[in-house]
């Protein structure tokens, strides 16, 4: 196939070149990686009992099961889309009142890159209802949380890593102590929800199942659509 030179190599004006460079030079934000790993349950924070079968089944696989709203998109062609509503943890942090429905592709041919619907496809989806997200009871980060530097976030992740290390080495009491330290150091932290989930896990493992259950139920009441909710449900099962 005849491949023309990229416009950038053939720009006809400086304005054009600057616009093209703006398009190619875009980078993810400083804390996008930490946020993404946390959302995947891969940050130090979230690898709660790694024994669970990864995020594939424990965090995400069951995600749709108990959720208030499941948005079905029809008419997208051969690959049936079964989107699942969820709220990313940081959305809960930063936009607690916004609509948080999201569609993710769920079905595709095995063992091949799925043929998803390109933006060009005239896919019409029903308007998602606004997610009924209650104001989180856990202390939220301040409004300027987005300005937090990556290193500050890294320190926060490190503090939760310390708690997780205790937990995975079979010392839930030590983990609870570390979590107390975390809460004192980061009362408005980015990862307070992750910390709460780990605390529930640690409480359960330390034998305080009654307290763990109560906190898990409270978490689910406040954050029913959190990506962490399915894991919390796992503690109740």
């Amino acid at each position: 196939m005849d491949e023309p030179r990229r416009l950038r190599d053939d720009a006809e004006s400086t304005v054009e070149l600057l616009l093209l460079e703006a398009g190619t030079s875009y980078k993810s934000s400083a804390d996008a990686r930490a946020k993404t790993l946390a959302a995947l349950g891969l940050a130090g924070t979230a690898a709660v009992s790694a024994g669970a079968v990864g995020m594939g089944s424990s965090l995400l696989g069951k995600a749709g099961a108990g959720w208030a709203k499941v948005l079905l998109i029809s008419g997208l062609g051969a690959g049936v889309m079964a989107p699942i509503g969820y709220v990313t943890w940081n959305r809960l942090h930063s936009h607690p009142s916004e609509s948080a429905q999201i569609a993710t592709p769920a079905e595709a041919p095995k063992m091949s890159a799925p043929k998803l619907v390109a933006p060009s496809a005239p896919a019409e989806a029903p308007e998602p209802a606004a997610a009924e997200v209650e104001a989180p009871a856990v202390v939220l980060p301040k409004a300027d949380a987005k300005t937090t530097s990556a290193s500050a976030l890294a320190a926060e992740v490190g503090a939760l890593d310390a708690a997780r290390a205790e937990l995975t080495s079979g010392n839930p009491t030590g983990a609870l102590a570390k979590l107390d330290e975390y809460s004192r150091a980061y009362p408005h932290g980015h990862l307070v929800l992750e910390a709460e989930v780990m605390r529930i896990d640690a409480l359960a493992k330390s034998g305080q199942t009654g307290v763990a259950k109560k906190r898990a139920e409270a978490f689910l009441r406040r954050h029913p659509n959190s990506v962490l909710a399915s894991r919390v449900r796992g503690f109740l099962d």
């Binding site: 993810s28 993404t36 959302a39 995020m55 594939g56 965090l59 091949s112 799925p114």
Partner: peptide, 29 residues
């Protein structure tokens, strides 16, 4: 940032269907 997470969460759910070497293509779609 939110959409980056959505993309990777979707990828995580489908990870077993992603052929090794096809990760970029999968993430693109």
């Amino acid at each position: 940032d939110d959409d980056v997470q959505r993309t990777f969460i979707a990828a995580a759910r489908r990870l077993d269907d992603v052929r090794p070497g096809a990760e970029r293509s999968f993430l693109l779609q």
